[in-house]
Amino acid sequence: WPSCVVARVTGPQTDDGEGLSAEERGSTCTTPPRAEPVPLQDDIQKAEELARDQRSADLLGRSDADLVLVREWSRFFCQLSGPLRQLTSPNRGLFDEQPAHVRAAAVRGHCALPAAAQALASARPALRALDNYLAETGSGPFLLGEERTLADIVGVCVVLDAFRLALPGPVRCRYGAILRWLSACLKLDAFECIGGAEGVEFCAWPAEEEEAFKTRADEALAKLPSRAAVVVPRRGRHG
């Protein structure tokens, strides 16, 4: 969750004002209990407030224009989170808090169903727009350039599970720029709680199973009604 990652970046304080150890900060990187779900938008607001309170305003950009972009990217990822959650949280999130291998098996089984292909098809226009943006920008590895911001943290929290659990190789390879961006973000200390770039394992299924899922998703996308192209946040759009 974004607020958990921001807590690691900012170094949350104890009651006596002393900073928490790295191990203690790592313990904050957990998903809120499923019995009390927190809307993503609310958690992003909490993350923004935490960045301000802990004097880590650089997470919100270096200017008012940057802050506008950070918030626009957060809204972009909030919209994308809907279909991606349908893809990675079968049975209404029943397996979200299970051990990694149990959840991976549940998502794999879910991906054999038409609903998963439809969810991926719904997410693909936004994923393609994000990948194109990251491929064409030359200012740095992150969404706003050389420095990571809350926009990157929100983005990783939204898309990572889909890439590691539900997008097999033939689908994942379509998004090379997103994969490079994920790799850059996961190298940050804030993501050590999930193993960093080296600790994330991407799903690999039998070849025929991967191709079948890719085909189902392509067919589902072809059946979707035509929509306006997804527009990603960019500098200068408000100038």
Rank of each mutant, 00 (worst) to 15 (best):
S3K: 04
V5M: 09
V6G: 03
V9I: 12
G11M: 02
D15S: 14
G17A: 08
G17N: 04
E18P: 01
E18V: 15
L20V: 15
S21H: 06
A22V: 14
E23S: 14
E24R: 15
G26N: 09
S27I: 03
S27Q: 15
T30F: 00
T30P: 00
T31C: 09
P33N: 03
R34G: 02
A35I: 00
A35K: 08
E36D: 11
E36T: 15
P37G: 08
V38N: 01
P39R: 14
L40C: 07
Q41S: 15
D43W: 10
I44M: 13
Q45P: 00
A47P: 05
A47Q: 04
E49N: 12
Q54Y: 14
S56E: 07
S56W: 05
D58C: 05
L59P: 13
A65D: 11
D66M: 07
D66S: 12
V68G: 09
F76G: 08
F77M: 07
S81A: 14
L84F: 02
Q86V: 05
N91V: 01
N91D: 13
L94D: 05
P99S: 04
A100M: 08
A100N: 06
H101T: 13
R103Y: 02
G109V: 09
G109Q: 11
C111V: 00
C111E: 05
A116W: 02
A117V: 06
A123K: 04
R124L: 10
R124A: 12
R124W: 14
P125I: 03
P125R: 06
L130A: 09
L134V: 09
A135H: 07
S139Y: 01
S139E: 13
P141I: 01
L144Q: 12
E147V: 09
L150T: 08
L150F: 05
D152Q: 10
D152L: 09
I153Y: 05
V156N: 06
V159T: 15
V159E: 03
D161Q: 15
R164T: 12
G169M: 01
P170H: 11
Y175E: 03
A177C: 08
A177G: 09
W181C: 02
S183F: 00
A184G: 06
A184R: 03
L188F: 14
L188Q: 15
L188G: 14
D189P: 15
I194E: 11
I194G: 10
A197G: 00
W205H: 08
E210Y: 03
E211N: 14
K214A: 12
A217Y: 07
A220D: 08
A222I: 04
P225D: 04
P225K: 08
A228F: 05
V230D: 03
V231W: 00
V231R: 11
V232I: 09
P233C: 04
G236Y: 08
R237Q: 14
R237S: 13
